[in-house]
Design a binder for these strands. Structure first.
Lengths: 240, 240
DNA sequence: GCAAAAGTGTTTCACATACACCCATGC
DNA sequence: GCATGGGTGTATGTGAAACACTTTTGC
């Protein structure tokens, strides 16, 4: 330790640099759905401080990319997925939230189809975890996860987004199971169907489920106008 | 310009520093209410690039403060206001959104009582502007303002927050005028009263308006349990 | 024929909306 | 007494919620 009062140029410089030495990262809460369970994609933390704990996928924002681009890059680099649904949720900037320095992070949530062949879990440090089985995560990632899950729950009945978690064709029962997994409640089948049909989100494909050990249900898909990609349209907002 | 290939240590260092040289700021959309108009507090931009334009109040996040603290500090330093309502809305990180370097900014909106004696517009560069009269702002602040205004409009019927814009005692007519100013629509008086009473947010003070040139209205105040301060309770979220 | 899930309709309640008249006060 | 806004009730429509029986298929 250096004594106080001996403020060298080196220290002066360090102090000054410190002021600008806040790094910014993005963290992605990547939701998936399988076996009637809502899942989240996590990676083993590589930090000694969090040995054995799982963490969200994230990375520092690069100096030459728009911040909105960073979570798309993270998903592309880590899972191979492109054109996914992503939405910014909240920015977390508690002092000491990161053990190796001052890092402020912006959280995004993503909805992906786990059956997509594009998804590469090759690194083998990536795993899907049941939302309900998650106890402790590295950093403040449990808080981030909870915040994103709450946001997802708020959005799900208002906007046609859950379809990003399903294959293109699905039955109403599958859709209802998905809503139940997200919201964590049971829903009445008749009321659910009425409500979902009223929104006019679905197209009846005039096809039936196959290879099910019971009466097959009708198949639907999302109305194609609603499949807009999610990247924010800045021009539109500017003109408001 | 230096030729490529001649990468000096100086350049190496600069490149490396660049990577971490993203500054983070907070910008506050401070809403007020006066003369039946929703207002926002703006400051004359001191940047040559934005000469003559107004901008939001903001500042860099300090290396030794929680990010959530920064907007409270900005309000305290610039207006003298404390214990205000503040809510984080969105983080904006477009490349080149700031002319003097890479700055990512987190936007907060605040609701303050313009009649509060604490508020100091002393610097005289601060002025309240009617929301509807704002055309162009410095940086991407028009986008930030629109985003915050949309968020405010989403929140007002769900949460008892608009009371931060009013004095402690108010009549239902004042409250309705305020809602109309925020939402930009006219409301039916009878239906508005029923709806607001149903929420059980108000306490009848058994007092009447005074010095009004017409039949005085009853005065109400916000139920005191709802006057919770707005600072996020991290512990509660962590335990979810 | 049986197990398993698909499909469907009615009633009730809460809340949103549309709408018009009398009342209390200051001047 | 008149101008100004305060205060109130009813009828109608829409969506949410509760609730049970018949149908179709694979086995």
């Amino acid at each position: 330790m250096q004594k106080i009062g001996l403020k060298t140029a080196e220290i002066e410089k360090k102090t000054h640099l410190d002021f600008f030495n806040i790094a910014i990262s993005v963290d992605c809460v990547i939701f998936g759905y399988e076996n009637k369970k809502l899942k989240v994609l996590l990676i083993k933390s590589d930090l000694k401080e969090f040995e054995g704990l799982w963490s969200l996928l994230g990375d520092l924002v690069r100096p030459d990319e728009d911040m909105e681009e960073a979570p798309y890059r993270v998903l592309r680099e880590r899972t191979g997925l492109q054109n996914v649904f992503l939405e910014q949720v909240h920015t977390f900037g508690r002092l000491n939230r990161h053990p190796s320095g001052r890092v402020i992070t912006t959280a995004y949530y993503s909805l992906v189809d786990t059956k997509s062949h594009a998804i590469q879990l090759t690194e083998n440090e990536l795993h899907w975890h049941n939302i309900n089985d998650i106890e402790k995560l590295a950093f403040d990632h449990k808080l981030i996860l909870n915040t994103c899950l709450n946001r997802l729950r708020e959005q799900v009945m208002e906007h046609p987004i859950v379809f990003n978690l399903l294959s293109e064709k699905f039955s109403l029962r599958e859709l209802q199971d998905l809503y139940e997994a997200i919201l964590g409640v049971e829903l009445d089948r008749r009321n659910f169907r009425k409500r979902i049909m009223l929104k006019n989100w679905l197209v009846d494909l005039n096809e039936m489920e196959e290879d099910v050990p019971h009466r097959p249900g009708k198949l639907y898909k999302l109305r194609s106008q609603l499949k807009k990609n999610n990247r924010p349209n800045v021009d539109r907002l500017m003109s408001l």
